[in-house]
Nucleic acid binder design. Structure first.
Lengths: 191, 191
DNA sequence: ACCTGAACACCGTTCAAGT
DNA sequence: ACCTGAACACCGTTCAAGT
């Protein structure tokens, strides 16, 4: 007698997302996911290769959402203004889904990380923007500077590293403006 | 009959460091630490409040080493050149101890994180450097820009996020030079 | 005063047995 | 074809018992 499916991969990933965002990685246990769906833990293994595979799927969803958010923020008119908007979208994503954001960049085993191409694709909108602004030769390095600043700032902010006072929002804006100023000025290499 | 101590907190932390750097966080189990010292797991709890406390001690050591490395790299003559040296010391620390570096910034429970003041102190040398260069009003925001770029770049680099080709060393240098160029130019706030 | 074996709670995962 | 209980290996942690 064939049994009828009582859940789906989509439902499992959705339950994982809720648990992750509400209680962090520790709260995301296979048993908690199963209970939330109304099945038993072992049943999850029919649809998901294991906890690490579930984490990888969640991270991949995160990269796709981040890419979409950034893409929607870019209008294609003025590059500096587009960069301000793209950076704001990046930071807003991390603020909206802090635990998912942390998962995306967490130093986990390879089978718990998003596929390389999915992660790489999320960097494309900013790379395209910098190409339109500065031209292909400088674009990759410039995109890496922007991405590194955005990720570094946001991850330090989320982990509570900015405790020396001062306005965090102001530091973000000042950072972006300094980058924009730097891009507009030819760099002199070190001696 | 009082028993004689067969280990010390220092030895426990040292064993934890070796396990962390050779196999990552997963390899750092209380049993592995105990075995490496030649005692049994439960004995560790006489010196360390638990695994999270051990992680916090390791992270604190990391912040102190990082602070020392950066401080030693700064000579106090030319600020831009000092910034290049300080940034290089930062990146070198992360390359030398990648798992410890990841632990320092990992989103762990509060009792597994380094004390706030120890983490904050590691940012002091760069803050002082930027104060000497740009003056107190701009220094905090400038230091946060530098630190965010350095942390973001290094953590993306270590997690393998830079897979689109290009020279990673070149992107690092170009990033630092763009920051230096940006600091030398007054920023225009967004409309 | 410190160390240890035994035990507990919890977790990820496997698998034979059910329907 | 899917779900489940039972079981296994492993981990962090506690604690009474040893010396």
């Amino acid at each position: 007698v064939p049994a009828v499916a009582r859940t789906s991969t989509l439902e499992i990933v959705a339950a994982g997302r809720v648990l992750l965002e509400s209680g962090g990685l520790d709260a995301l246990t296979m048993q908690a996911v199963a209970t939330r769906i109304g099945i038993r833990g072992p049943s999850l293994y029919k649809r998901v290769p294991g906890r690490n595979g579930l984490l990888a799927a969640l991270a991949a969803d995160g990269y796709r959402e981040l890419e979409r958010d950034i893409r929607e923020a870019i209008r294609g008119d003025e590059p500096p203004e587009d960069l301000r908007r793209a950076a704001a979208a990046y930071r807003a994503f991390a603020h909206r889904s802090p635990h998912l954001y942390a998962l995306m960049f967490a130093p986990l085993p390879a089978d718990a990380r998003a596929p390389v191409d999915v992660a790489a694709a999320s960097a494309a909108p900013i790379l395209d923007l910098m190409t339109a602004w500065l031209g292909a030769p400088r674009a990759l390095e410039a995109a890496r500077l922007v991405t590194a600043f955005a990720h570094g700032f946001v991850s330090m902010e989320l982990s509570g590293a900015f405790r020396l006072g001062g306005e965090v929002d102001g530091a973000w804006t000042a950072g972006i403006e300094t980058l924009i100023a730097g891009f507009g000025r030819p760099t002199s290499p070190p001696r």
